[in-house]
Design a protein around this nucleic acid. Sequence first.
DNA 1: CACCAAACTTACCGATCGGTAAGTTAAACT
DNA 2: AGTTTAACTTACCGATCGGTAAGTTTGGTG
Lengths: 211, 211
Amino acid sequence: MAKNTRDRLLAVALEQFAERGFDGVSIAGIADVLGLSKQALLHHFESKEKLYGEVLDGISRAFQERIEATDATPKNDRDAIAALLTALVEDHRQHPQQTRLLMRELLDNPRRAEHVSHWYLRGFLDTLVDRVHALPQWRSVGRHHAATAIYQFLGAINYFAVSSPTLKAMFSEAFYADMDACFDAQLEQLIQAGLAAGPASVRREAEGMNA
Amino acid sequence: MAKNTRDRLLAVALEQFAERGFDGVSIAGIADVLGLSKQALLHHFESKEKLYGEVLDGISRAFQERIEATDATPKNDRDAIAALLTALVEDHRQHPQQTRLLMRELLDNPRRAEHVSHWYLRGFLDTLVDRVHALPQWRSVGRHHAATAIYQFLGAINYFAVSSPTLKAMFSEAFYADMDACFDAQLEQLIQAGLAAGPASVRREAEGMNA
DNA sequence: CACCAAACTTACCGATCGGTAAGTTAAACT
DNA sequence: AGTTTAACTTACCGATCGGTAAGTTTGGTG
C-alpha cells in the first residue's frame, strides 16, 4: 500500500484536483496531506501544471488498460456495445474521483487545448462509433449519427456518475441507492432500445437546403 | 442593452464563473471587464460568495420561467415528456454558459451543501419523474426507476451541451455541426424508445436477497 | 444652497499563491 | 574515506487574492 512518495503525491493530487478543481487546490495543501513541504512536491514535479498533467496522463493510461481488458470480445453487435458501455459504469463506480476530474477537464478544456486531441477519449470514442456505424440500421447514414447516439449514452453514464453527492442530498441516501441499483439494467435496456430504433431520419439535413 | 451596472456585473460574472469556475475567477477581473475597480463590485455585492450566489439564483429563476413557459401542455404521455426534454436542449443551446456553470456547481456541490436542496432542479426533476411514473408500464414499479430513466436522459442532454468545445477540437467543426443538427431528432427517438421499453425488471432487487 | 445617499475611487492590509535559492541529511557508489 | 546523488528542509520572493477603510464624485431633494 505504501508506495513511492512520488506515487503517493500523485494519488493525493488526483483526489484533490477531482474534489476542488485545478484552481481550488494548492500544491502546499497536497504536500501537507503527506506531511511534506511544498518544495518536496516541487522536487518530484517541477510545477503545478506538470503535476496536473501527470495526474491526467495516469488516468488516461489506467483507463486505456481497463478498457482493453474489458474489450476481449470485439463483436459488432448491440450486446457487445452495451457491454462495453455498462462496463464503463462499473469503472466509474470504482474510480469516482477520476470521473469527476475528467468532467472538470471537459469544462476547462477550451482554455487548455493541449490536453484534448491526443486524449484517451478519441480512440475509445472512435471504436464505439465505428461499431455502432457497422450495425444494420446505422450503416446507411452518416457516421455522425452513430457518434451522436454514442455520445448520448456516454452522457447518461458520466452525468450520473458525477451526480451521486447531489442526488443523495436532493433525495436521500436510500433513494439514491435504489437508483444506483437499477441503473445498470436500465441503461442496458436504454442502449438496446436506442440502437434497435436506429438513427433518426433527419429530413432537412442536406435535402431541405434547396428549399 | 445597456442595463444597470449591477446587472452588467452579474452578466460578466456568469460568463467568467462558467468559463473558469469559482476559484479561477477574481472579482477584480470581473470588474475590469467593465472598466470598474474591484471595490465598485464590492459596493454592489458584499463578497465574492454573495456575488456567486446571486448569479446562481439568477440562473435558477430564469430557468424556472423558461420551463414554466414551455410547460403549457402538461399531459402525461411520452410525447409531452419528450417535448419537455428536447426543449431543454434548445435552452442549453441558447444559454451555454448557464449550463456550464450548473455543471461546475454539480461538481462542487459536495463542498457547498446549501445550494442543493432548495434548487430549481428539485421541482423540475420531480415533475418529470412523476410524469414518467404515471406512464402505463412505469406505474407498477418503484419511483426510482422513473427517476433513473429521467436522469439518464438529462445526462445525455447536459453532457452534450457542455462538450461542444471538446467535440469541435476532437473531431472538427463540421462534424460537430452534423452531430448538433441530428441531436434533437436522435434524442427524441431515444427518449421514445427508452420510455416505450419500460423499466428494466430488476430481478435481484429485494427478491434475490433471501438467496 | 445645503445636504445626503448612491456609486464609485485610491490606498492599503494580511494571507496565500506558485516558484526560486540555498542548504541539510542520508544512503549509495567508487 | 571521499564523492555524488536523491530526497528533502527552511528561508525567501513578487504577485495576487478577497476584503477594509477612507475619501471623492454625482445627481437628486429639502
